[in-house]
Simulated scan of single mutants.
Amino acid sequence: MADSLEITKTTGHSRSISLPSRSHPLATAVEEQLQRLRSSDATSSSPASSAPQKLGGLNDLYDCIDDWLQMPLTQQALSHEHHRSSMEELLDGSVKLLDVCGNVRDIFSHTKECIQELESSFRRRRGGGSEKASEVETYIKSRKKLQKMVAKLLDHLKKMVKKNHLRKHSKPEATLSVLREAEEISFSVFESLLHVLSGPRERLKPVSWSMVSNMLSPKRISCDEKAEYDQIQGLDVELTILKSAKDANPQVDNVSKRMEALELSIREIEEDVECIFRRLVKTRAGLLNIINC
């Protein structure tokens, strides 16, 4: 007999699903991870700011799913012939997830490289404002190219999510439903991560000193819940100041410290995404083994 458990959606609606094996700890663990991620998505005031925290939850989810797929009851539920079409959809979805995850990883890697190049150029050259302005301009151009890549991937991701919603016209078997929920949550987390890098493009354009002063206001920075001060956008602002300053040297130390902190944050995200990529490969291999049995 299967348990009936409730999953709360971000839209406020809820539905019940049943997991095989009434009291098996792996089934419970998968459900708890789904609930935790859904709850985090529903209560977050800023999806982009919560995205890095969700990576750990997503990694834990697929860790549980990989073990859960080894359960005889799970494999039995997924191997029925009348689930063949749904399993093929899941396999197709797993390829798309891997593609998106790989692209997100590459974009974060390119962003880290852009920051490292700027850091390196600052260390090599101790010249005046004109040299710094040229280096900053190179970084800004690279950022704009990356933003275009992010926008394109976000558009692609939204189209895939829309297609996934259209296919949910029927109630899937409970075990299939769990895997579809995991796929949907994964796309949501990747979308949030991309928003971390996208940011408002107007911030890369010249800004007035009054706007800069407002954005760098200590009161605004400390009021985290009311106005998120994003690290990447904060760097863009300080680089704009540095680029426009007649004497850039006083700002270099502050910008360098911000770049170091940002590079570390991006490196951690990149490593987490790489870990999730490996989990997704393992999950896909598990699904292939089941469908080929």
Rank of each mutant, 00 (worst) to 15 (best):
N59E: 05
R267E: 07
A133Q: 03
L166K: 09
H83W: 05
E228Q: 02
G128W: 04
E173Q: 12
V207E: 15
N249C: 00
R220H: 04
E274H: 07
P206F: 08
D247I: 00
D155C: 02
E184P: 02
V104N: 12
L157R: 07
E268H: 05
K171W: 01
L197D: 02
L216W: 03
S44H: 04
Q251H: 13
L204K: 05
Q233K: 13
M160K: 01
Q70H: 12
E131H: 12
S177K: 03
D230I: 00
E183M: 13
R201M: 10
V237L: 11
K159R: 13
R38F: 09
S208G: 01
E131T: 15
S86F: 09
L91D: 09
R84M: 14
R201H: 14
S46N: 05
R38N: 01
M211A: 14
R258A: 11
S50Y: 05
A133W: 04
S208L: 01
N214H: 14
H195K: 01
K158V: 07
H80S: 11
A174G: 15
S40P: 02
K112N: 02
Q75H: 11
K148T: 12
R167I: 02
P250E: 07
S14D: 01
R284T: 12
E228G: 00
L146P: 14
I232P: 14
G56C: 06
S86R: 15
E202R: 01
I115N: 00
